[in-house]
Write a protein that binds this DNA or RNA. Structure first.
Length: 191
DNA sequence: TAGTTGATCGTCT
DNA sequence: GACGATCAACTAA
């Protein structure tokens, strides 16, 4: 079963599946691993989704095959990364909102100078992209291959998935498309 | 501690 | 020419 195959399902089903998945990032001789603890589902029927208005040059990767990366740049200074899901051409993706660093903490701190605690390194979409050095260069990358890889994992027995409303956007705020692991300290919080 | 705003640019209208 | 799936610094109280 390939990653692409496992993720060829609707975004709302792929989102909980991606919780607990392990990200392996190799960069400049360093290997960093992290676990996904918070995600958000987007599909083409969602007014807040970049794919809502159809395929454009910018959102091209979002319409590609599942298991690839969709990276976009926003607010003039932040990148956000998504895992493309669903059938090719469908325009569904799951935004990675927060991860829990497992190894390579030193490298992450290096990427985010001035950050004190471990939690603030990766508890937000813009933050984790900076920490993992994810930019437009990773747009469209196949996530079953190094240097950026995702492997699905079972959650621990004592971990629970919470589904709730979204954060940080103005359109379709009330959709319950956000999923996170209950009581995980690395989950981003409402402001 | 809650609320506001500046930074900064690719993409779309 | 306006805006955004954000973040952090600042202000007021």
């Amino acid at each position: 079963m390939t990653l692409q195959h496992e993720l060829t399902i609707p975004a709302v089903e792929a989102a909980p599946l991606l919780l607990g998945a392990i990200i392996t990032r190799q960069l400049a001789g360093n290997t960093v691993t992290a676990r996904i603890v918070e995600v958000e589902a987007y599909d083409q029927l969602d007014p807040a989704s970049h794919s809502f208005k159809g395929e454009t040059k910018r959102t091209l990767a979002m319409f590609g095959p599942a298991g690839h990366m969709y990276v976009y740049f926003t607010y003039g200074m932040h990148y956000c990364c998504n895992v493309v899901v669903g059938a090719e051409g469908q325009g569904s993706a799951v935004l990675i909102r927060a991860v829990e660093p497992l190894s390579g903490l030193g490298f992450l701190r290096e990427r985010r100078p001035g950050i004190v605690g471990d939690i603030q390194l990766t508890n937000g979409p813009g933050k984790l992209c900076q920490a993992l050095s994810i930019t437009l260069a990773e747009n469209g990358h196949d996530l079953s291959m190094p240097p950026l890889k995702i492997e699905l994992q079972q959650l621990q027995k004592n971990e629970t998935i919470i589904q709730t409303t979204r954060i940080g956007i103005s359109k379709a705020k009330d959709k319950k498309s956000r999923f996170y692991i209950k009581a995980n300290p690395y989950v981003s919080l409402p402001r």
